[in-house]
């Protein structure tokens, strides 16, 4: 994985830690369910999508969003910030 990709993924992880009410460095894993467990609320989803767009430097087509696309960090990385 490139350094740029690592940095982008770290930024996403840091964003989650900043906004998740009850997650810590230790408790946030790549498979922690973010929306389902309500660590991230629905009102923050657009902000997360904007962050992902800026990190990948490509727009995200909302029409192509599918259930589970933001399920956890592993899914987000694979879907929006692939290696």
């Amino acid at each position: 994985m490139t350094t740029l990709a690592t940095t982008a993924r770290e930024e996403v992880r840091n964003w989650v830690l900043l906004h998740a009410k009850d997650l810590s460095e230790a408790s946030l894993t790549d498979t922690t369910p973010l929306l389902e467990a309500r660590h991230i609320t629905s009102l923050l989803v657009p902000d997360l999508l904007l962050l992902l767009e800026s990190l990948r430097q490509e727009p995200i087509d909302l029409a192509n969003l599918k259930a589970g696309d933001l399920r956890d960090l592993r899914t987000i990385y694979a879907r929006f910030l692939p290696e």
Binding site: L35, S42, V45, L62, L70
Partner: peptide, 14 residues
């Protein structure tokens, strides 16, 4: 819908 956070949230977390 594309301008509504609740719609976007429902798409990714039904």
């Amino acid at each position: 819908p594309s301008k509504n956070a609740k719609y976007i949230a429902q798409r990714v977390n039904p």
